[in-house]
Design a protein around this nucleic acid. Sequence first.
DNA 1: GATATTTTTCCGTAATATGGAAAATTGCCG
DNA 2: CGGCAATTTTCCATATTACGGAAAAATATC
Lengths: 281, 281
Amino acid sequence: MEDQIIAPRRRGRPASAADGGEVQSLDRAIALLRVLAEADGMSLSDIAKRADLPASTAHRLLATLQKRQLVNHDQENGLWTVGLGLFRIGAAYLRIRKLPDVGRPVIRRLLHETEETVNLAMFDGNELVVVGQAEGHAPVRAFFRLGARLPLHATAAGKSIMASASPAFRGACLAQIRYEAFTVRTHRSERELMDDLALVSERGYAVDHEEHTAGMRAVAAAIFNEWREPIGAVSVSGPSVRMSDDRVTRLGRRVIAAADQMTRLYSGADESLPPEFVAYR
Amino acid sequence: MEDQIIAPRRRGRPASAADGGEVQSLDRAIALLRVLAEADGMSLSDIAKRADLPASTAHRLLATLQKRQLVNHDQENGLWTVGLGLFRIGAAYLRIRKLPDVGRPVIRRLLHETEETVNLAMFDGNELVVVGQAEGHAPVRAFFRLGARLPLHATAAGKSIMASASPAFRGACLAQIRYEAFTVRTHRSERELMDDLALVSERGYAVDHEEHTAGMRAVAAAIFNEWREPIGAVSVSGPSVRMSDDRVTRLGRRVIAAADQMTRLYSGADESLPPEFVAYR
DNA sequence: GATATTTTTCCGTAATATGGAAAATTGCCG
DNA sequence: CGGCAATTTTCCATATTACGGAAAAATATC
């Protein structure tokens, strides 16, 4: 996996106001799913009536959805219900969007207080994915875009996650690290990295001293789920000239507080989210 | 709401082996959702490549999905992600199918031990909905089908739920009851019903003595979610001739045990379900 | 500034979804 | 027990609708 680390900016024509493309059959199928989701266990004729479609059309769409497990069709009594496949796809939303959603206000406040770029990253497949950010309007801007994938061993966020993970989890991560060198200060061996992680554990926050990008420093702390497993991290980064050791220490305390707040929002009840988020926890 | 209480049996031609109807565009859209669900935050060209579709077709389908909120499209960087609308629909699966799924083995065992019809019902809109059952092969069969809606005041299941609910919840239920009479023994007033509920609270199980159907008796106990709110009930029912007072007492103990087991399966971790079920509790 | 990518729109084509109607079942009622 | 009614499922002629190549638009990259 020798992918680009920096995510590409979007190219091409941006979406215009009037989106021309629309697919009738898909639109109707979504309407059917909405009907099923609110009143489950309906007969074909009820569904067709509720969605204002001919029975034959509704049947054809439902049959297609059933083939893909998005709806169930009880052979015994002919009732249609929402299927497990739909849940599997829908569950991806939580996995991916929940932290960005609950973390947004925290990130923004952190930007206001520090006036440096704030990044929110999630652990995914032994890498980090940037899922949220707030860019400082200082002359020197950050490099990462939403969706960018970053290495564990050369970022403050990655180190904060590994340092707070269980020994088994940490071991699994370390085993897969390739120690790609980004700058002269990038850790090049497990020994070096482990020594750093021990410091991170003590302090509660991780520091990246130009290990990923020359001239840039970052401070990060881990965010946890309800079982105290690290799922991501929040980081503040800026040019080394603005990041004195003193300031790094102060930022460390602040970043820990922000991460703790996100942990609470993520793992606890949160009223700013739609009820589905907390209905089945 | 003067609906039929008994759900209709399915009529019409049963589904044959070879289901003819298939809708290409819908099928392709589902494939796109699957791609997005496993690797979120992709560009159009990546998605199209992964789903083996022309970019223009993928774009048209995604635009339709976006219009219905099933996917998000970040204006800034052009990345596509799964949307909240998809989660809202998918969450309906849990609300509706989780209890039937985890309860199925318990119901079957109960049928084997008692050789009477077992029903699993969920509370929904001040009524009960039959969401699972196992029919005894005794000559006298049960009346209810999957999807049937039953009244709270004239069923053992309904009474077991009201008896174990919080005062506020019970009050709200009682306020909406119409006291429709099904047999001469159906409770006709709040006073009568409340007296019965007091007994149910003491015993832990509810009994229906021919209050819904002449000649039929039933025993039920409530099932709870993780906050100890009743969400449904399991019941055993049979003809009065087979349901002596002694047997009702014995069945009561057994039904409580079954309900407790379902409560544990529903509110706790359960390995027989796919990981999505427990991933975000 | 020029080129290469990527996204978005356009539009001619025909493949594909549509929906009325018939066929196939089964419940229901007398 | 038999016929009627209700419902689901299949079929098929039709033209609506989705398709996808290509152009246009916009931007990152060099």
